[in-house]
Structures are given as structure tokens and as C-alpha cells.
Simulated assay, not measured.
Amino acid sequence: MSITNRYLNQLGPQLTERDLSIIHEVGRFKLLTGGQLERLFFADCSDTSRARNRQAVLRRLTGHRVLARVGQRRVGGAQRGSASYFYTLDVAGQHLAQGTSGRPRRPYSWYEPTAAHFLAVAELYVTLTEGARSGSFALLDFQPEPYCWRTFGHRILKPDAFAQLGVVYPDGRRRKGSFFVEVDRANQYGAKIETKLPQYLAYYQHHRQAQPEQSFPRVVFFAPHEQRMRYLRRLIAERPDARHLFAVGSLDDPLAVLLS
């Protein structure tokens, strides 16, 4: 199928608001599973129709070359059909994303290590989105990389994500928290992780000089298990000048640290 301007002009009016939102989010995160898309965009459907509606929409968008399936379909488990696939923007989706994002991403080339990392960051976003639906907090902002990167001087700070949450307490008090997020999958040791701490400290010093009236986001390292969390805490403990900036949390329960 040739993706021409005529084809895109004919396709555009057929897309729903949900379709455009799916394009926007897949463009931002580069890679999402069908299950993650279901949790983001089909939560308002009944339990019996949720999977059926997700399958129909993703099949249609894939057929229109808006989305593409990449990687290997995962076998087994409760997920079936399109929930088991990984999705990225296809050629038509790349063109359409220019109207839904100021910085659409290039087509994704499958590479297992980066895929797992992209999906882990996306899973954090989906978890926070689901948590916000309860009304106990508001997800005010979530920026994956590279949108969350910060330039200062001739350097670039490259967090995995930036998140901002708002909480309203029963007594009417309001609190807004901002966070730089590092999603640690327990596969980086030594210098690569240790250099993250001085990078954040350098940006913190720059921020204090440039914007002393603004609070600095807390830096949260999320880890997959307790052993890794202990390792990260030891690294932070070795920098007493930075302890107040950093926190360590579990990927299984991110709200425990973000709402603390």
C-alpha cells in the first residue's frame, strides 16, 4: 500500500478521537503493548466488550498502516489476540503523528533491550493513569524521553521520564509533587548508574542558581525487586550531600513513594 497525501486525506476523517489519542500516545512512548492500550483507552467498556473493542480498533488501525506490530507475539498467559502484540507507529501513523505531537518519533526498529525499557516506562505511565482514575490524586503531567530531557549549559540531563502529581487531602490541603524518574531494570551496574547521581547534582546546582524560587523535582529510582532497591540505596547513601534529592521505590508499587 502506497501512503500518499491523497490516502492520508481520505483516512483522516475516518479516525475517531480515540484513534487520534492512540496515535499520540504510541508516538510519545514509541512502543506500547495491546494490553497497555486496552487499559488506557478501553477502560470505560464493559468487561465483556473491552477485549473485543480493543481487537477491532487495533486491527483497523494496523490495516490502515497507522500502527504496526513489531517483535514477537508473546505466547501464554491471560492475554489473547492483539493484547499480546507490541505496537509502534507505521508509515501512515508517522505522518498523522505530526498533527498530534510537536515531536513525533521515528519508526521503531526492534531491539529487545530497548523494547523492555520503553515498555517499563510506559507501564509506569499506565499504572499512574489507572491510579488517577480513582480520584485520590491527579496525574498532571507525564513526559517520557526525550521530551523530559533538560538542557543546561552545554550538557543534557536525560531522565527516563518526568511526572507531576497533584493530591487533594480530605481537609482541603493541596500538594503538587514533581519527579524525575529513572526506571531501573537491574541490568546496569557500576559507572553507568553511578554517573547518574552527579549528573542530577550538577543540574540541581544549575537550577538553584537559575531558578532559586522554584522547587526542584525529586529524583526517584524505580527498581524491580528488593535486592536492587538495596543496591541503589547504598549508592545514594555514599552521597550524603544528595540524599534529600533521591528516593528509591518499587516498580510494583510506584505510588508508595510518589505519594509519600
Rank of each mutant, 00 (worst) to 15 (best):
H154K: 12
S260C: 13
D160C: 00
F179Y: 11
S46L: 05
Q209V: 06
S260H: 10
G63Y: 04
T100F: 09
D184F: 10
H225G: 01
T127C: 07
L251V: 02
W149P: 00
V91G: 05
L11E: 06
S82D: 11
L31C: 06
H117R: 05
H225C: 07
V26C: 04
A191P: 03
N5T: 10
E213Q: 15
A122M: 03
F42Y: 06
L96D: 09
S178T: 14
V75Y: 05
R106S: 15
P113Q: 12
E25K: 15
V220A: 06
A122K: 06
S84M: 04
W149E: 04
A51D: 13
D252I: 03
L157F: 06
E38S: 15
I23A: 03
A163W: 00
Y189P: 00
F246L: 00
A223H: 06
S250P: 04
L245Y: 05
Q143N: 05
R133D: 11
P113A: 08
L11Q: 05
L20T: 06
H225V: 00
G135N: 05
F86S: 11
N5Q: 12
A247L: 09
V70S: 01
E226A: 14
K30L: 09
G249S: 07
E213H: 14
V126T: 12
N53K: 15
Q205L: 13
